[in-house]
Amino acid sequence: MAVTTQTDRDDSAKAVLRASQLSKYYEMGEVKVHALKNVDLSLYEGELLVLLGASGSGKSTLLNILGGLDVASSGSLFYGDQELSTATASELTQYRRDHVGFVFQFYNLISSLTARENVSLVTDIAADPMKPEEALALVGLESRLDHFPAQLSGGEQQRVAIARAIAKRPRILLCDEPTGALDASTGRLVLSVLNQVNRETGTTMAIITHNAAIGRIGDTVLRMSSGEIVERSRNDVREDVEHIEW
């Protein structure tokens, strides 16, 4: 597998998502929980961003807001020119539908549909989708098209989920602990698929994980703690997935 080398980022590169001073707090009874504190962040076209942090650090909250599942309590978030921080629920649904793909820790496949049908569920409502078979071939599952989730291994299920997420050609792919429920070797397989999708389709991607080793495959790595970004780093060279151990 070829090693990608990315030198200094051109700061004028197009930001797909721009967040500034994002904060999120929840009222838990009489206690106010600050899940996210004044986060500034840009996600650039074609970038692979890895968000690291322990559980409770706020990384999922940030991902949910970026994905249009949740809205910030304050601050602003732009998708291109569209302001998501003030969008209605229906506008957010449309945003997710047209531009965002999700990969979940527990795959969340529809158990009553086969691999192919799980993908076509999304391609049915997309404007310019791939063929479900094409998306499944991209993740190496061309031979498992008509299997139901209960007939697939965890890694296979996660690859179906990735196929489902990319089949509509989203601009942004958000992955929440995509390897969290998998053993290391299956996890590596899933990461290499994500890596390949990022390079071949140019999809902007954010992966959240508590596994620091995974940070080495990204362009940018953000470390979060107590709702704040405490460390930003950029990898000059994205490590090959096969070389990662955990």
């Binding site: 649904t93 997710r96 539908r97 793909g101 969340n108 158990s111």
Partner: peptide, 16 residues
Amino acid sequence: GRELASLRVMGFHRRE
């Protein structure tokens, strides 16, 4: 509920 929530996340409207 989980399946349906996943679909909502993927951009399915409430009606769908």
